[in-house]
Each structure stands twice: as structure tokens, then as C-alpha cells.
Design a protein around this nucleic acid. Sequence first.
DNA 1: TGGCGATGTTACAGATTTGTGACTGGGGCG
DNA 2: CGCCCCAGTCACAAATCTGTAACATCGCCA
Lengths: 232, 232
Amino acid sequence: MTTAGKRVLIVDDEAPIREMIAVALEMAGYECLEAENVQEAHSLVVDQRPDMILLDWMLPGVSGVEFARRLKREEATAELPIIMLTAKGEEENKVQGLESGADDYITKPFSPRELVARLKAVLRRATPLGVEETIEVNGLILDPVCHRVMAHDKAVDVGPTEYRLLQFFMTHQERAYSRSQLLDQVWGGNVYVEERTVDVHIRRLRKALGQSHEQLIQTVRGTGYRFSTRAS
Amino acid sequence: MTTAGKRVLIVDDEAPIREMIAVALEMAGYECLEAENVQEAHSLVVDQRPDMILLDWMLPGVSGVEFARRLKREEATAELPIIMLTAKGEEENKVQGLESGADDYITKPFSPRELVARLKAVLRRATPLGVEETIEVNGLILDPVCHRVMAHDKAVDVGPTEYRLLQFFMTHQERAYSRSQLLDQVWGGNVYVEERTVDVHIRRLRKALGQSHEQLIQTVRGTGYRFSTRAS
DNA sequence: TGGCGATGTTACAGATTTGTGACTGGGGCG
DNA sequence: CGCCCCAGTCACAAATCTGTAACATCGCCA
């Protein structure tokens, strides 16, 4: 799952701010679309199908909140991730913003670095892959069609359970899961097995992946495990 | 967000009514816990962490209203959705019931269908909120979904207790807390540990945050600590 | 300035959580 | 039937976390 090439729609009525954001995102490898009001934004959403929206809270005419709500109501756009931009001092509106369906919010002023980090996080969480698509992370490839795992072009031998575990992790990167959530998701909801069983299979999976990739599976002490490309 | 598998705590002093409700909910795919008084209810809340509570207005001993109020006061249970059950003719108390923190109320007698509908609605409203959103302050990011702390895009390694402590602070900025309040809120009300333990964990947290962010956690001499973006 | 209570810092032992290898038993398959 | 693979469990080792005490500093006030 490449982060580059994603299209981000920036909705803000102040051109300089839009520009600043656009520059930062382009440097990070995103494509930008810009709109200065909801009408413009809406037609861009329809025509260009961006991958996510950066939406200013305060907008002339229809507010950002209202627009977000509208997008979430529409079937076609309900899954579109939205990050809300709020000016400092509007923070008490945070709850309302999140309730309206935004996936995150960020307070102005913010550093470009922060913005990109948040955006990445939201995109990563929001981009589910079809079950048939091969997933690649740092040279580790899981190919559901061939039912096969490759590390740096060498086949990796994993058992059925480890395969499902890895598949789940690779389609749900970054987020931490408890042992019981993993049992639900990977084993299937109504099995009775010890939670520690998860640890053992994690162990087997790590071993199979070998030194080059085992650090992708991170222990979240007191909680469970996480698959992440970023060092812990 | 699946509606199935949610655990509902039913608090009513009349066993047949509890039973009737439990059957209805189980048919709808919920798991049920039952309690016939506030004491019992409270320990179930603590032990089982249900996803919501159906609470009878009239209860022997401590009333339902009082119990609801108590739950809303506790940090750990404040977000727990509550539906109040009131008998016919007590409707004039509706206002008081809602003021006590209930998210909805329903008048006996009610149909199972109605109950399930109301319950779904309350759960739907309540579920996406909670502590699922990332919080960002001055480049310090706490992401509950990934169970992770980042300072300027670099992962910060904190232990479980420090993580909870930071999460509490970031969701309760600016205000000062005494050591004993922190023990209540972060450790959980009924532990016996020295107050000085808080200092040690504060120290560990500050260390983990590093120079760039440790000043966010401020000492309030003679009182306790405070998380604030404004220099002290 | 000196004393005193409050807070910072560190070390450590016990508790808890996780890693790891080994064992058991089931089920498919030749 | 016998073999082999695999899932699940267990027991022990290793890693990490936790609370506490002891000592070092700090800041306030007389």
C-alpha cells in the first residue's frame, strides 16, 4: 500500500493557507485539489474522487461541519476520510466536529510535518484492501491469489493460522489489537482457546518471517500486538 | 461497528422484568448481565465493563438516578451509555432522569421491539465517540487506536501506566490534579498505593517525552500536577 | 541565610507479562 | 494403519513494569 499518489482535497476559504498546505503535501508526494467553498468542493468530490479531504471548520456559506455531515450521509462518499481544520479557540467544537463524521481534527496553526503525519495515519487506517489484492510492505509480499508469502523474493513457509494472522495484520496495519480481538478476527468469533495461544502463533509467524521482517510485528505491552512499518 | 456482541447490564429489582428484558436482548444478539441493586450493579460495571446500562429508576436503597449520577462522575464510567427505565406516571421525573446523565429513558411498559430500537440508537450514538480519536498537542501525538505516542513523528516508548497517565492528561488539559485524584482516575479507584508513586510515574513520563515535551507536564507545588501548553 | 516540607531522581526487589521450546493429540493422506 | 503436519497448551526463561524506599534538590518562609 503506497502512501504516494493519493489525492487530497483541500477546502479552505483562504488561498494562502490552501497554498501552504498544498506545498507541504506535494512535497510529501500527495496530489492536491483545492476548493474555497463547499459548492466547489462538492463538484470536485464528484468529478475527481479524491482519497481524502482536509476541511476547514469555518467556511463562508455552508460550514465545514455541515458539509462533512452531508458527505457521511451519502452512500458514495461515506467512507471518504475527513480531517477537520479548526482554528485555535474553537476547540470546544471538537466534539461536534467529530460527531459530524470527521476522522480526525487538527488545530491551526500546525506544522506541515504534523499535518502529514496525521494525514498518513488517517489514510492508513482508512484504506481497506480488497481480499484479492497482493499487499507489499518493506519487501514482504502477501499474495492472496497464490496464497503465498514472499520475503525479498524468497518464499516464506507459514502455516494456515500464521497466514491468516499475517493477512489480517497486513490489511490492518498500524493499529493495535488485543489478543481477544485477534482471536475474534483471525480465529473466528466463537472458538474457545486460550489467549496465550495468540502469543505462540505470533512467535511462529515472527520466526517464519525471519530477522528481516519480524520487527514488523510489534508487541504492545499490556495490550496486544500491532503490525507497523514504523519502529516502535 | 457491529451491534452484535455488545454487553448490556440490566439493573432492576424485579427478577421477572429483568428476565423479560434479557430474553429480548439476547434474541437481538446482545449479551446480558443482570443486577438487582446498585451494589451488585457497581461491581458488575467494574468487573465486566458492560457497553451500556439499562437502569431502573426505582430501586431499593440507592436509587437509579443517584447511581447514574455517580457513574457519570467517575472518569472511567462517564462515557457509559445509560438508558433509564421509568414506570408510567413517573414521567414528570423525566427531566431529572436526563439531568442525572442518562442518555435516554423509556417508560414501562414497553415493547421489546421498542427497547431494542432505543438501545441500538443510543449505542450507535455512543460508540464512535469515546477515546478513539488521536489527540495532538505541540507536535506530541497520542493515538489510542494504534496505542502509540509520537513526538514530532518519532515513536515514544512509554509503559502502560505512563500511557494511561498521558492519555488522561491530554484529555484533561490545563486543569491541576492532586495525586489522589490521579490515582483514582488513572490507576482506578480502589487500589492501595502510595501517593508518591504518582511522582515516580510522572518522572518516568517526563523522561520518556524528552526535553521537547516534558515541560507540558507541570508541577503544581503543594497540589499535584497539570498538563498545559502554556508555560508555567 | 537556615530549616523544613515538597518534589526530583535513582536503585531495587517483587510482580506481571511475554518469549520460547517442548509436548500432546487430532486429523488428513498415502 | 502409520506418518506427518499442525493447533493448542504448558512450563520455564527472559523481559519489562511497578511500587517503594532512600537520598538529593528545590523553593518557600521566618
